[in-house]
Nucleic acid binder design. Structure first.
Lengths: 340, 340
DNA sequence: AGCAACTGCGCAAACCTTTTCCGAGCCCGA
DNA sequence: TCGGGCTCGGAAAAGGTTTGCGCAGTTGCT
């Protein structure tokens, strides 16, 4: 049952209505709006007046159907919209919104079936492009299935195919910031506590840390990297292990802020002064963690929003047929608070 | 420059192609696919074969243009996509996805101008409905501007207009769960530490807490509610104030998990055993906080995902012209861990 | 056998906008 | 005064799908 028409007079004006109201043909009305074609100023004005009078707004769907562009991109996030994908997503949405492009959100929950399903849906909706983002920094298999000529950009989790466009965080530079800061404040007995060894983020940062210490002719205070998980509990346990194994440790570089916070908690309980006796540097700059820690954490800010923005810009370029294939590394920032 | 056509033969088949391939007219092909209309089984089969041969998938845009339904809803989030709106969003996306509906994401950053802009955009795209969600539980002004016959559902932040459809968390029931649990484990000197008094979440929970204690002929151990902010630091400070003012306090009910965690940290430093001497109950069940606290927090789980899901279902009902106006309260769950 | 009913399928309109093409009318100059 | 050139605006098609209607052919009943 649709409402009686006398109750719903405002069914949204079409260009035909505008043309009728202005006493011209649809074609002329269109030209008046798009600026193409030449016509008498007063004719154009009549059309513009009609537009205002009827509150006309062009039907996006009709425009898209005609132009073949939907002014829409798909944003596939592989696992929920966690702490990591959210800022990426917002950065992308922001950059795309400026270009009159809307974002179609898909959550695959890490499920390949769902991914296929969403991909088909996006293709049916004729999206202009797709951004794929995940939580982990581990490379992921490229989008499988047909995505014809539709460009794809991977954000945060790079594609395994180096030909694809991937925008990731510059872990090497982030580690450099952290280590150089610690060296600059006079530390030389540095321990590294991080997440699971099978996570690229943990593995990579551990490798870079080693290399950087090497360059400074130093080595890890405990002689090894402490792999565990990304939790505070692990940070607390690891800190005790480190203090036992290498009591002369004067700094912790941690794989994320939760671990760093756990470390500071243990140090606090042991009445070790931070940063005077031992400095602590985290990673991620997760406010709720970094600010609540005692003392507040010096940490590496992974500019996730920027990653999203850059990914969006790369995608726009690719849509406009100027693809710049390959990887992009977005630099990190060092945020100095009180822990180091 | 588009690619030479011999390199891009797969330009996506249209129904016309299918019809030609099957030797029927477009109309017939359409009917064969939709199941409408009567036709010889072999004719239908020929069409189906052609569909498979050409990998035909209907053009959503064209379908939408024709049907007037876009199978799309707008999801406006008022401030970033924080810890609160994210689960809501996912719940909604999940429920809508099951109904073949896609989600158009808009972030207003709490800006009215942006909200208008996005609203117009959504209307131009002919969304079938809109879900509005925010971080705060404070009522918000209803969506202003024209949204014609497009139904709107408010999630988490209710609309100020009681006629609108709003899906919120049942704070009263959540508080009841917390207080009844504390009473059941034999506590009677309960303190309440919460966020800013000008937040509805803090104000409401404080009021309910008072009422519930009243029903049990009890009163707050410190005689008043401790308003502050939602941070751990406030929880730590407040705990000290409470211990000073009412040393016989045997339980803390906190406005959120961060405050609760701050409280446990102070208690731990004072060597007060939790929960033996003092029990602590949080609110929100934010895993990273609740699990990292020592001991892990007993807390109230605000089922945000369910709120999103329910909002989506209400919206679907409204789209199908079965609107059920007014508010819906989604119940909370008590999650018992070790702190109470 | 003849008529009615029914089946199977195609045509064309509709959804709404944009774009292209073309004709009509005007002005001006020769 | 007439023709050429220019300006303006209308008509039509395209984009892909759905659907109402009508036509033709076939079956079934009397």
């Amino acid at each position: 049952m649709s409402k009686p028409s006398h109750l719903a007079p405002k069914v949204r004006a079409t260009l035909t209505d505008v043309a009728a109201h202005a006493g011209v043909s649809v074609g002329t009305a269109s030209k008046a709006l798009s600026g193409t074609g030449r016509m008498r100023p007063e004719t154009r004005q009549r059309v513009l007046d009609a537009v205002r009078a009827l509150d006309f707004r062009p039907n996006q769907q009709a425009q898209s159907l005609h132009s073949g562009r939907s002014w829409t991109v798909g944003l596939m996030t592989t696992d929920g919209i966690g702490r990591f994908s959210t800022p990426v997503l917002l950065g992308a949405e922001d950059a795309l919104g400026a270009g009159k492009i809307s974002v179609l959100l898909c959550d695959t929950r890490g499920d390949a079936i769902r991914e296929q399903h969403h991909l088909r849906n996006l293709m049916d909706r004729r999206v202009d492009g797709i951004i794929v983002t995940g939580r982990r920094t581990d490379p992921r298999p490229p989008l499988s299935g047909i995505h014809d000529g539709v460009p794809v950009v991977y954000a945060l989790s790079p594609s395994m195919d180096p030909e694809d466009i991937s925008v990731v965080s510059d872990d090497a530079q982030g580690c450099r910031l952290a280590i150089e800061h610690l060296l600059a404040i006079g530390r030389s007995r540095i321990a590294h506590v991080t997440g699971p060894g099978h996570h690229a983020a943990a593995q990579d940062r551990a490798r870079y840390t080693r290399t950087l210490l090497d360059e400074a002719s130093l080595e890890l205070s405990t002689g090894r990297v402490h792999f565990g998980d990304w939790s505070e509990a692990w940070g607390r346990r690891a800190a005790e292990a480190v203090l036992r194994a290498a009591p002369d440790t004067d700094a912790f570089f941690c794989g994320n802020d939760q671990i760093a916070r756990g470390v500071t908690d243990t140090l606090r309980e042991r009445a070790v002064r931070v940063p005077e006796e031992i400095a602590v540097v985290g990673y991620d700059n997760w406010d709720t963690m970094a600010l609540a820690a005692r003392p507040p954490l010096t940490t590496i800010d992974v500019d996730l929003t920027e990653i999203g923005r850059v990914a969006a810009l790369r995608l726009l370029a690719a849509i406009d047929e100027n693809p710049q294939p390959g990887g992009v590394q977005v630099p990190c920032r060092l945020v100095v608070r009180e822990s180091a």
